[in-house]
Nucleic acid binder design. Structure first.
Lengths: 153, 153
DNA sequence: TGACTCCGTTCACTTTCAAGACTTAGTTAG
DNA sequence: CTAACTAAGTCTTGAAAGTGAACGGAGTCA
């Protein structure tokens, strides 16, 4: 199967990865959450090939994850900002960061901390159940077909 | 920058993506969470090139995300199972699935539902703060350097 | 003996990526 | 007016990774 057929799969993860699943996109979005907005800044922050950066930004704009906002008119220059849809990826990104912190931080601790402004503390992300509020553990979840299933071709 | 230099970056997301950030790995892990365990089953489920599947499984075993368990001795055959470290990726995966559900599910609803066995209900994953228990929203988080920071080279 | 199973490996391409030079459109300095 | 500079891409070229199909090994089954 080629990658560009993935978005037709009957799986929300596959459709998500068709948009943000390549090697660089989540790092671009991490930078976006850290208020990086301009082509040149993304490029220098990530060391990504310019051609690839241009392609990724284009896709993210087409998908509505980022939007281009003019910040200068002569010459016209645009910056890239997260949309609401893009902001919706925050839980996934913070979960990946937290996994990296747990697995790869040295004895000195993680390179970044995250302060929850609502309570003022540095926090870990905890995945909880929308129904009972309890923490969700992988072995306590049973996936089953939902209303949107289609049969495999 | 080449991809194999990423794990030296001073960022937990970069180090995480160095392990699970390629196009197929999260789909392999999705299958693993759905109790797919054998080479042939991964290959047929995903339609991935066998060469790539072999390389990914090898890396995931080396990284301790999966482990090989013998299920037959003559001829020796192994299956791939999630380790505790691998199970730790569940919050990230469920967050990505939830984003896909929210953005791409048709009017009939998502293709898969997830039942929380602790309470018996189908649930959404909610990212909450380990300190105050409140739901975390992206604009309410301030990242700042932690004890493990190193200066950029 | 021959067909079959499972887990990979090899081969012959095709596609994507990395790194840096180049382009375009406009601004600022001399 | 000209030259240098900036930002946002685009182009080029060799290297790397991915694709799909065929092949191999080690054993089972009829």
């Amino acid at each position: 199967m080629r990658w560009d057929e993935l978005d037709r799969e009957n799986c929300s993860l596959a459709r998500t990865l068709a948009v943000i699943g390549d090697r660089w996109t989540l790092l671009i979005l991490r930078d976006a959450f850290l208020r990086v907005r301009r082509f040149e800044d993304f490029q220098q922050s990530l060391g990504i090939a310019r051609r690839v950066l241009a392609a990724r930004l284009k896709l993210l704009v087409e998908e509505g994850v980022l939007r281009k906002v003019a910040y200068e008119h002569r010459p016209p220059r645009y910056e890239y900002r997260l949309t609401e849809k893009g902001l919706g990826l925050y839980p996934a990104i913070i979960a990946l960061v937290h996994w990296g912190d747990a697995q790869y931080a040295g004895r000195r601790g993680p390179p970044m901390l995250h302060r929850h402004l609502a309570c003022g503390h540095d926090f870990r992300a905890v995945t909880t159940c929308s129904e009972c509020g309890g923490e969700v553990r992988p072995r306590e979840v049973a996936p089953h077909p939902g209303p949107g299933v289609r049969k495999r071709a």
